[in-house]
Design a protein around this nucleic acid. Structure first.
Lengths: 227, 227
DNA sequence: TAAGTATGATAGTATTACTACTAAATTTGC
DNA sequence: GCAAATTTAGTAGTAATACTATCATACTTA
């Protein structure tokens, strides 16, 4: 059977976790644990216990837990990029592509059997709750220099390219796309935890929540483009 | 001389820092230190050294450093609310009020002599870089229950009220306002650290950066409202 | 079969977040 | 004006975290 994997930036890890069983277990159980505990309460000690290994063994793969989070989130953006490509290649014009991009960003994330040992639903919850922690640090500039944000950047660039094709005079395509990518996460979080900051009602069926989210993001993007 | 202060939620602190000299120094030096060190590297030990006191003394005012951050950010939202009221009371219609609200949100924050021992410029940098850390935690729901997010929520409600007056049929006024409040911070951060995610050029004079930020936010809000 | 590499086990360090306890200073009652 | 009550400061300690160093063992491959 052929295994599809993403080639991620080498600076994300010390030893490539995709090449060994221990490495794969670190990713798999790491996602599970961060999802359950939250990033602050997640430790390599707990992860080592979970994968039946030891703390120093984990440190041989990742410099620290922040790098592991970076790795997971970089994987997520690669996955989004891949899904966007799958969904847009056959489309004729940028308006259609943009519409599909918004769908891909806002739709419910479900387990993708193409990638075993990655639980995309849990990973999406991690992105919603922990993404900001990858760049709101004292090391942003170094991490950016090292290319750790390449995934988010290239996804943003791709979609803002559609905006540029549709409305070449609009001066803020990158800002617009980074804003809606983040807003899609934030609004899901707010609808669950700070409902006063959102109009997506928690009680709605999940599919309906994602429909509303899509409608909200569309109201922004097509509002900006409408003249 | 009359002292203007904000009455903040009592659950934010153990002892009201506004009532004692030590308390005021904790706020003043706390803002300075978090601004310099970043929240992760900020500790009560370092703060105690800075204010010439001891760790346990600080703990008598705030349960932990997260609560101190909450306090500062709650103060910031109260200040924003106060500035919004000052700027909008005399205005005749919701469109004008909305326009002014966007200006208040996006304009450069300068030291406000009304409030001694609060450096609003530093506080704004803290809000830009650390706001998310107040709610992206395992305790959001409890903290929300305790009313710790009241400031952000009431500011959002006030501005989304203008939206509702202008366009009663628009279904996402709260989502729109929370999104632009956060986006205003994020875009400032991106322009400095992840320029690929923004169209606000770092090299521009600061005043010009804030003009562009305002233009970007206006493009979203008035795009949505335009029919 | 020897050499190299990956993993495992054990122990140790500096820092952090927080607490219990004691000492000193200040306020208040009379 | 002074003892008692109360507030506030300071000392010392703990458990947990984020690592690092060292050594042993197993597995792999030239």
């Amino acid at each position: 059977m052929s295994q599809l994997t993403f080639k991620l930036n080498e600076r994300l890890y010390l030893r490539d976790p995709q090449t060994t069983i221990l490495g794969q277990k670190i990713i798999e159980k790491g996602i599970e644990l961060i999802d359950i505990l939250g990033f602050e309460h997640f430790t390599f000690k707990k992860l080592a216990a979970e994968v039946g290994s030891t703390e120093p063994s984990i440190y041989r793969y990742f410099e620290n837990k922040h790098r592991l989070l970076h790795y997971m989130i970089a994987w997520y953006w690669s996955w989004m990029d891949y899904r966007l490509d799958l969904a847009t290649t056959s489309l004729p014009n940028p308006v259609e592509k943009l519409r599909v991009a918004i769908r891909v960003i806002t739709e419910e994330k479900k387990y993708d059997p193409t990638f075993q040992h990655v639980d995309e639903e849990a990973l999406h919850r991690i992105v919603v709750g922990e993404l900001e922690k990858t760049y709101l640090t004292k090391w942003v500039d170094d991490d950016n220099q090292a290319g750790l944000f390449g995934g988010l950047k290239s996804l943003t660039k791709k979609i803002s390219g559609y905006i540029h094709e549709i409305a070449p005079d609009y001066p803020f395509p990158n800002s617009l796309i980074s804003t809606i990518i983040l807003a899609a996460n934030e609004q899901l979080f707010f609808s669950q935890h700070l409902p006063a900051l959102s109009n997506i009602e928690k009680q709605l069926p999940v599919a309906e929540q994602h429909n509303k989210l899509k409608a909200f993001i569309e109201s922004i993007v097509f509002g900006v483009l409408r003249k």
